[in-house]
């Protein structure tokens, strides 16, 4: 069910540069007051937390409410001092965590 997130990073990163990270994940972001074909309320299930960790150290975090659109897209920034690993995690109301990692190569 959990689709692979799409992450876009700059092609090259210089040491100390602040880069834009663009991340998209597929998720219905179900608000919890829609009805299905049988008229039953569809239970709320949204991604409520997104975290970005650089080498295990949290650099950015977002808390989402029902007002975030389906298939949440997010652009944010990270300062990359040295080569490392960027780990992104999305967690929804059902406790499902979608995770992905990207190696950050730094050019001299």
């Amino acid at each position: 069910m959990a689709a692979t997130p799409r992450v876009k990073l700059p092609e090259t990163i210089k040491a100390g540069e602040t880069i834009e990270v663009r991340a998209l994940v597929r998720h219905p972001m179900e608000r919890g007051h829609r009805k299905d074909a049988q008229g039953r309320t569809i239970q709320r299930n949204i991604i409520h937390t997104f975290t970005a960790e650089l080498d295990g150290h949290q650099v950015f975090r977002a808390k989402f409410g029902t007002g975030v659109a389906a298939n949440p897209f997010l652009s944010f920034y990270v300062t990359v001092a040295k080569p490392g690993t960027l780990a992104l995690t999305w967690v929804d109301d059902n406790g499902v965590a979608i995770q992905t990692e990207r190696a950050l190569d730094v050019v001299a």
Binding site: F60, R61, A62, G67, V68, A69, F76, T79
Partner: peptide, 22 residues
Amino acid sequence: AHVATFQFTPQSGRAAVAGRMR
């Protein structure tokens, strides 16, 4: 009312975000 909260750190480099809301 609450759409989102973005928490930054000095390592964020920039307090800037973009996304899509309802």
